[in-house]
């Protein structure tokens, strides 16, 4: 029973999503379920977890893999505890997102798609985050950090380090 990989709390959370959709449309909760088990697993999905979601929602595993590989917020490799998602699209670019990227790469000593040795941070280049008037923007977990400059970034990195 691979569905057992899903924790009690995650199940309760998934069940809340299932309840939003018509009774015969459980698979509508697949996207939420994948996000929930990804969080449970510290930020990335595994084959076992995808299978568990398929079993839990009674849908074909292949269907779950398709969803899990289509959307950019699902990860298939270990990530840092804090995933720093930096927008480099047009409005951010015009407001010097390059400086944000350079500064982060220098401070963390990693490139896009990499994780710091201590496992604390990973860096990801993302498309427009829909906060263009507050550019340059970066998403970390549930939060947006806006109007970024090197000083703000340093402050944020220190705070995240303290958090551990």
């Amino acid at each position: 029973m691979s569905a057992e990989l899903i924790s009690e709390t995650s199940r309760a959370d998934i069940d809340r999503w299932v309840a939003k959709y018509p009774e015969d449309q459980k698979q509508s909760a697949a996207m939420a379920a994948l996000r929930i088990v990804q969080d449970q697993n510290g930020g990335h999905l595994t084959q076992e977890l995808m299978d568990a979601v398929a079993e839990y929602l009674q849908m074909p595993a292949i269907h779950v893999y398709e969803v899990a590989t289509f959307y950019s917020m699902y990860e298939h490799k270990p990530q840092g505890k804090h995933k720093l998602c930096v927008c480099t699209n047009i409005s951010c670019m015009l407001r010097n997102s390059k400086q944000v990227v350079d500064h982060l790469q220098e401070r963390l000593n990693i490139g896009f798609g990499e994780v710091t040795e201590d496992g604390l941070f990973s860096l990801k280049e993302v498309e427009c985050l829909g906060a263009c008037v507050n550019a340059p923007v970066m998403q970390v977990g549930e939060h947006y950090h806006e109007h970024l400059d090197p000083a703000k970034i340093d402050e944020l990195l220190d705070a995240l380090r303290k958090e551990g």
Binding site: K20, M31, A32, L34, R35, Y71, S72, Y74, V126, E127
Partner: peptide, 10 residues
């Protein structure tokens, strides 16, 4: 009325 959350796809 319910909210559905996407997962990153323009």
């Amino acid at each position: 009325l319910d909210a559905h959350l996407g997962a990153g796809a323009y």
